[in-house]
């Protein structure tokens, strides 16, 4: 529905991709690890290899969690906007079709938080 207004009400989105200096936003959540209260926001160039995300970027964010040491990212399963998503470590975010503000979730089989608590 349109906003009720006294004149034309049209604005450019505040967060369009052109404002991020060549990078784009990507949200990532490690499911079953609520120690991290919400999905994380990254600002990455589309030519970032997916491998770099998994091997360089995520470890910095999630390394604090005791589960992380045992994570094998090649076994992680991924969802994009809630739907199964096939990843390829050798492709870039752009090549995988990831767009600005896409949201990814991954599960690490067998690793479900401290004592399996989801935390």
């Amino acid at each position: 529905m349109a906003v009720k207004a006294i004149s034309k009400y049209e604005f450019a989105p505040a967060d369009s991709v052109d404002k991020f200096h060549g990078a784009q936003l990507l949200y990532v959540c490690w499911d079953d690890h609520l120690m991290f209260c919400s999905p994380l926001a990254y600002c990455l160039p589309p030519n970032t290899p997916f491998r770099d995300l998994c091997e360089k970027i995520l470890p910095k964010s999630y390394g604090y969690h005791p589960d992380w040491a045992q994570v094998d990212m090649s076994k992680a399963t991924w969802l994009k906007s809630g739907q199964p998503f096939a990843v390829d470590m050798d492709k870039t975010l752009g090549e995988l079709g990831l767009k600005h503000k896409d949201v990814l979730r991954f599960k690490t089989p067998g690793l479900n938080g401290l004592n399996g608590s989801g935390f």
């Binding site: 959540c29 120690m35 209260c37 926001a41 964010s61 604090y64």
Partner: peptide
């Protein structure tokens, strides 16, 4: 514990 990555809002 300090979360070092910005959250999704």
């Amino acid at each position: 514990f300090y979360n070092n990555t910005l959250p999704m809002l």
